[in-house]
Simulated assay, not measured.
Amino acid sequence: MDRYARWNTLLELLTESGRVTVEEAAERLAVSQATIRRDFDQLAQQQMITRTRGGAVANGVSYDLPLRYKTAKHSAEKQRIGAAAAALVDPGMVVGLNGGTTMTEVARALAVRPELAGNADDAQFTVVTNALNIANELLVRSRMKIVVAGGVVRPQSFELVGPLGANLLREVTLDVALLGVDALDVSLGAAAHHEGEAAMNSLMVGQARRVVIIADSSKLGGHAFARICPIDRIDTLVTDSGATPEIVSAFEYAGVRVIVA
């Protein structure tokens, strides 16, 4: 287990219990107590936790962890979802992408599809995104047109939020918006933890002919602070095999096409 995977697990343990001792963490992660002490010290230096004698306590940040601490969670499922979502776009489209770990896998899957670059006479494949890391993933395709919305960077997700980016999004038209979300519920719709991200995502929805939500099964049936869009605005859901038949049926009954990767 690498450092970031350990940190992710430690932060999740603190979320569950509020307090963890060095001995408990070492036993849970099957590493030495010296390694856990170093991990705790490094997380405390970044103000992610509060160090105590013999352990650590939660510092109120696990609600919205920085992206680099989330990448180890559900990684195999997210790779499959990313490939399935990328298969829904065609050359010449204008596609909106937001940020997050699942959307990183979507971007990587798009980047290795050489047919999207097209020929010189074809309409250019264009990606509009408000996430710096997504733009970086796609820059390896030199013939893809990458449009980045402006704004203030959120370190947690590398997404740009605020009126600068909102002005750009109001002026574009998207063939499809591929959006990762923090929660998706049949009654409540799609939602994000942060209101600024939700507002940018909502603008993409408003400018898109078709909306595809990309979410692993852990996000389904949950709720988050700020709504992105109602369920009737969503055309397709791409999720993993952890989604129960009951949840899949509920989304399909609501008129959403469900793709299980």
Rank of each mutant, 00 (worst) to 15 (best):
R28A: 15
L29H: 02
V31T: 05
V31G: 03
Q33A: 08
A34M: 13
A34W: 04
T35H: 06
T35R: 10
I36Y: 11
R37E: 13
R38Y: 10
D41Y: 12
Q42Y: 00
L43R: 05
L43C: 05
L43G: 09
L43W: 04
L43E: 08
A44E: 09
Q45F: 03
Q45I: 01
Q46N: 08
Q46C: 04
Q46Y: 00
Q46L: 13
Q47K: 11
Q47C: 01
Q47P: 01
Q47Y: 10
M48R: 06
I49F: 08
R51Y: 05
R53V: 04
G54V: 02
A56C: 09
A58S: 11
A58Q: 10
N59W: 11
G60E: 08
G60K: 08
G60C: 04
S62N: 12
Y63H: 14
Y63D: 15
L65Q: 03
L65P: 00
L65S: 01
P66D: 15
R68Y: 15
Y69S: 03
Y69F: 15
T71C: 00
A72H: 15
K73W: 09
K73F: 09
S75V: 12
S75L: 14
A76Y: 08
A76M: 09
Q79H: 12
R80I: 05
G82W: 00
A83H: 14
A83L: 14
A84G: 07
A84R: 14
A84D: 01
A85K: 14
A85D: 13
A86Y: 07
A87K: 08
A87D: 15
L88M: 14
V89T: 09
V89L: 08
D90G: 02
P91D: 00
G92A: 01
M93C: 03
M93W: 11
V94P: 10
V94T: 15
V94W: 10
V95Q: 06
L97T: 00
N98A: 07
N98V: 00
G100C: 01
T101Q: 01
T104H: 11
E105N: 02
V106R: 05
L110H: 04
L110Y: 07
A111G: 03
A111W: 00
V112Q: 13
V112N: 04
V112K: 09
V112F: 01
E115I: 02
L116G: 02
L116T: 00
L116Y: 02
G118W: 07
N119K: 11
N119M: 12
A120H: 07
A120K: 12
D122C: 12
A123Q: 15
Q124C: 08
T126N: 13
V127K: 13
V128K: 05
V128M: 03
T129A: 07
N130R: 07
A131C: 13
L132I: 07
I134R: 04
A135G: 15
A135L: 08
L138I: 04
L139F: 11
L139R: 14
M144E: 09
K145F: 12
V147Y: 06
V148M: 13
